[in-house]
């Protein structure tokens, strides 16, 4: 575990601290803390019902967490002191030249996307099915266009400022469609697309909101091997060329292990492992969680694993 690899502790974009989410008696997330590194692809994995989607819903404001702080630092210069000050002040966010910080647990869902710059996709794809592919991407640029249309008045009168903004928005949309190979379907209703294309469309729609952090809930679910390879390429492109940090939930270990800079493993709402792909892969707790072994048996498993350490590196890939 080399020090320079731990980008998420040195330069986090998102810091989740002591996050707890209760639904009545059910504790879906239990005192969870983790960091997401700026410019990293971070994977959140865990067995079914571990609470991964709930974490997403807390980060994107769809649920109000029972306890905990979720801080988003839009740029590097935001200091811990500034974060403390903001937390005490009771405000939702502070935007200064020293760096802007957003306390996501205090903000409502749409403000998180609009102001803080966090975009997301859903486990069950949520496209605007009756609208065309192009329209889907234009809706995503709503806030930008709304300002340009002078809250509709300028748009109604057809002022040149709005027309320029509308053309620019269309160009952005077309650029993204070209990137994910959907340009020839631009005028088709989104519901008519095959499943893999819908996934890609949902991702670029989220990207059209100009996020700094993109949260993807099982983007590779239901994709064939070729499509998930394309997805890997797309995610790397987003990270490298657009500087967007990516947080993703994924069950497909092929995707996770190949592209993630950082993996966080959840089980029953608790973090059981946190580190690079190689570190997590060989963590006996993770293996135990995935194989459904009881906590007491973990030690046994660990002992077993230590015996066959040589096997570990190859077996981990197909977790």
């Amino acid at each position: 575990m080399l020090k320079q690899n731990r980008n998420w502790t040195d330069n986090p974009i998102l810091s989740v601290e002591h996050l707890t989410m209760r639904f009545g008696g059910l504790v879906a997330i239990d005192d969870l803390s983790f960091d997401v590194g700026r410019g990293d692809i971070t994977a959140l994995i865990g067995p079914n019902g571990a609470g991964k989607t709930t974490v997403f819903n807390c980060v994107t404001g769809f649920y109000k967490p029972t306890e905990g702080r979720i801080a988003l630092r839009r740029d590097q210069h935001a200091t811990d002191e500034a974060l403390h000050e903001l937390t005490r002040s009771g405000r939702q966010y502070s935007e200064t030249d020293k760096g802007s910080i957003f306390l996501l647990e205090r903000m409502t869902d749409f403000r998180i996307t609009e102001v803080a710059g966090v975009a997301r996709t859903f486990q069950n794809i949520r496209l605007f099915g009756g609208m065309t592919v192009l329209e889907n991407l234009l809706v995503a640029q709503h806030n930008k266009l709304m300002r340009a249309s002078g809250l509709t008045i300028g748009g109604l009168l057809g002022l040149p400022g709005y027309r320029r903004a509308a053309d620019a928005a269309k160009d952005t949309a077309i650029e993204w469609l070209r990137r994910v190979d959907l340009l020839d379907r631009a005028d088709d209703p989104a519901a008519d697309l095959p499943y893999g294309a819908q996934r890609r469309l949902e991702i670029v729609r989220a990207l059209c909101t100009d996020p700094v952090l993109l949260c993807l809930d099982e983007p590779a679910a239901g994709l064939n091997p070729r499509e998930s390879t394309e997805l890997n390429t797309l995610l790397k492109y987003i990270r490298d060329e657009h500087g967007v940090s990516v947080l993703l939930i994924e069950h497909d270990m092929g995707v996770v292990m190949e592209i993630s800079d950082h993996i966080i493993v959840l089980d029953y709402g608790k973090k059981i492992s946190d580190g690079t792909a190689a570190a997590v892969r060989s963590d006996p707790k993770v293996i135990a969680a995935y194989l459904g072994v009881d906590d007491e048996e973990v030690d046994d498993v660990e002992r077993d694993l230590n015996v066959k350490t040589g096997h570990d590196a190859t077996a981990g890939g197909s977790l």
């Binding site: 769809f62 749409f110 859903f122 605007f128 099915g129 609208m131 709503h142 806030n143 249309s149 729609r205």
Partner: peptide
């Protein structure tokens, strides 16, 4: 215009609308 498109998007899926900052 963006408002009108947001109306139709709202009809299609309100949660998706909110996830896009609307």
């Amino acid at each position: 215009l963006p408002v009108g498109r947001a109306w139709e998007a709202l009809r299609e899926d309100e949660i998706a609308c909110r996830s896009l900052g609307i």
